[in-house]
């Protein structure tokens, strides 16, 4: 496959390939064919994915296919709306056209969560220090993405903000370094330490509140074929004004929480069970609570130093 970084292609070629649905995004273990038609999602894609390898060869076979389209013809012209179409029926709520970057990211999430069966997928952020990975598992609003973005500033590699992608044979985690999804107050926090240029425009009044994205760094893309061995699982909880503290939790409980967060564990079945059990060998799990990003980073440093040689 002839592929180059997105930013190396002429702008007009990229726009034509996106509009005609011939662009293939080659990110981590997945090739995704993408079709976009509105200016905002095209600009978002060209900006946030600039360092990612893509092909504009329509003959490339892809794992997934994602098209952003109006929910019906009427909504193409009046009070324009958009839905992610991952190629199968899914009850996605139409969003106003100006929220197309959110629809795009949601569509990529849907594609991986519901169509990937080569790997076990768990809902978690993953960063790596060299070849050792830290899993950041949290419910929505728990502080997963803010902590992931903060660790990027400490030179951790971004593997993913959304999915721990488990290679079932090697018991290692695959990188899928897409933009980190930031919500509400965390947007300004991350702009503060990463710089405004690293964060997308804010989408206001989305179903999830205000949303912006922290772009992956070129180094995250360059090292994305390097898998990492998970060593520690954290369940972060941001509580305004909280004293920083960590509490070790039973690895078995952590495993059950990971299983509950997985969209494809039950479908894969026995191989997912065996892969997860192998992955967990020798790992530790902690709940951490904190009231500031500085405190969260201090807790991670302390736990990482204690458990990872």
């Amino acid at each position: 496959m002839n592929r180059r970084a997105l930013s190396d292609y002429p702008r007009s070629d990229v726009i034509h390939a996106l509009r005609s649905g011939t662009l293939a995004l080659d990110l981590g273990p997945f090739l995704t064919r993408i079709k976009l038609s509105d200016r905002r999602s095209i600009d978002f894609f060209r900006d946030m994915y600039a360092a990612c390898p893509v092909s504009i060869d329509k003959a490339v076979l892809c794992d997934f296919s994602l098209c952003l389209r109006p929910p019906n013809k009427f909504r193409k012209y009046f009070r324009r709306q958009i839905v992610p179409d991952p190629g199968f029926q899914f009850p996605a709520v139409p969003l106003p056209l100006e929220m197309s970057p959110l629809a795009f990211e949601m569509g990529l999430n849907l594609s991986v969560a519901l169509q990937c069966f080569r790997f076990a997928i768990f809902h978690a952020g993953v960063v790596a220090d060299g070849d050792n990975a830290l899993i950041i598992a949290a419910k929505s609003g728990g502080g997963k993405s803010t902590l992931t973005a903060a660790l990027m500033e400490e030179d951790w590699r971004l593997l993913s903000d959304e999915f721990a992608i488990l290679d079932l044979d090697a018991a290692t985690l695959k990188a899928y370094p897409r933009p980190v999804s930031l919500k509400n107050a965390s947007i300004d926090v991350v702009r503060g330490f990463a710089g405004s240029g690293q964060v997308s425009d804010t989408l206001h009044d989305t179903p999830k509140g205000a949303i912006a994205y922290r772009r992956p760094r070129p180094s995250d893309i360059e090292t994305m074929q390097r898998a990492a061995k998970p060593r520690l699982i954290l369940f972060p909880r941001f509580t305004d004004g909280a004293q920083a503290e960590s509490r070790e939790i039973d690895l078995a409980d952590a495993a059950m929480q990971l299983i509950a967060s997985s969209p494809n564990y039950q479908v894969i079945g026995e191989r997912a069970f065996s892969g997860l059990m192998t992955m967990l060998e020798g790992m530790k799990a902690y709940e951490i609570e904190y009231g500031s990003t500085e405190d969260s980073l201090a807790l991670v440093r302390e736990l990482w130093k204690a458990h990872v040689p």
Binding site: D250, L251, A252, A255, F273, S274, M277, L280
Partner: peptide, 10 residues
């Protein structure tokens, strides 16, 4: 599969 005092049964 045993993890600590717990056993996982698939």
């Amino acid at each position: 599969h045993e993890i600590g005092d717990s056993t996982f049964a698939f």
